[in-house]
Design a protein around this nucleic acid. Structure first.
Lengths: 201, 201
DNA sequence: ATGCTTGTTGGACAGTCGTACAACAACTGC
DNA sequence: GCAGTTGTTGTACGACTGTCCAACAAGCAT
């Protein structure tokens, strides 16, 4: 008489990914305050103790979740750019437009971001992670702007400006969706893009 | 033999202000996670139970602190605009420049903002507070833009754009101060301002 | 001086938190 | 089939959380 297995073993990477996905779901559903080790373990269908086996602590798990979500966002942006075809300006437009569409612009992602931001000031390693991911984001934007013929000396400031603009619009879109629509956000961003890519100095 | 008073009574408004100031200090020093009722009470030199006497809960205290900090920021911006003199464009420049200078652009304020943002999605009353304060911010910017001669139909989108840009720059300036300087942020914001106020459509 | 109002105290309360760890069992290689 | 490895469990632990409330005392009115 053999009873069914009480649990399944997973490959370390798969289990780690499960825990990260569960954390993202809990953050989306319960918000920053509800993302406890126990809640995440329940969400992942796993014992609470397992979290400590894969991550140094809850902060590390949140940081890993942020990295994963950031990666997902990156891929969505890359896909949008690739789908836009070869025209440089169309690619740039696709990049900013995608930032205001699902799955990127969703209130559910916001909790992951705020949870991560809360850790930046108190933990050096997480501050470094933020710096790297943000620099990568700006670098990708710089190359898109360069394709559009923006002169090299202006690339840095233009990329910082567009990044800030997109972030600010995205944030407000998540915080109060009724203030303006995703379409408006896209229109606004593209008009600033027009102004930056056409005007001199 | 009379012993000195064990505590002083305060006017309700003064005590409330004390608690809010203490909350702001704790948020700045310890971050979002360290802002507990007890930590705030110790910071204010007061018994933990008193917090419940003045605020419905810790969330209400955080919301009140955000409102207060926002008010301080508002006054700093108004002062900068007033000091800029009568020229409309100089006033607009002063507005954005002040956003990247102390006391507004300081990493210490960030924790107050993230703590508040964390509550927006889960609490309707706090979401409403955010909407109102954000709308007020945009309205002030709209009037500054109108003074600069921006045609009325473009006011709304321009104000949203500048608000988002300033917010994005401010946020990144607080999160990783070494990515770019406050001066650069000002330069960037003013150049976008140039582009928006000069170019057509 | 006495009483009254009420701001204030300090601790009790029931939870929840993150972490650590011994025991267990699923899988791998034999 | 058996042993060894290790992913996994469940719980215990101490510290902390927010909220509540009876007792106290500061200051005002009388």
């Amino acid at each position: 008489m053999t009873s069914p297995p009480a649990f399944r073993r997973s490959e370390p990477d798969a289990r780690r990914a499960d825990l990260i996905a569960a954390t993202a779901r809990v953050l989306a559903r319960e918000g920053t305050g509800g993302a406890s080790v126990r809640a995440i373990a329940v969400e992942a269908g796993v014992s609470p103790g397992l979290v400590g086996h894969y991550f140094a602590g809850i902060d590390a798990l949140v940081a890993a979740t942020y990295a994963h979500v950031e990666h997902t966002v990156s891929e969505a942006l890359d896909a949008a750019v690739a789908a836009a075809g070869p025209d440089p300006r169309a690619r740039l437009d696709a990049f900013v437009t995608a930032s205001f569409s699902p799955p990127i612009a969703s209130g559910e992602l916001l909790a992951t971001w705020t949870a991560f931001w809360s850790l930046v000031r108190s933990r050096d390693d997480i501050a470094r992670q933020h710096d790297e991911q943000y620099a990568a984001f700006r670098a990708r934007l710089e190359s898109l702007l360069a394709e559009c013929g923006l002169p090299a000396p202006r690339l840095r400031h233009a990329a910082i400006a567009i990044t800030a603009l997109v972030d600010g619009l995205w944030l407000e879109l998540c915080l109060s969706p009724q203030a303006f629509s995703a379409d408006e956000a896209g229109t606004i961003a593209r008009s600033v893009l027009d102004a930056l890519t056409s005007s001199g100095r």
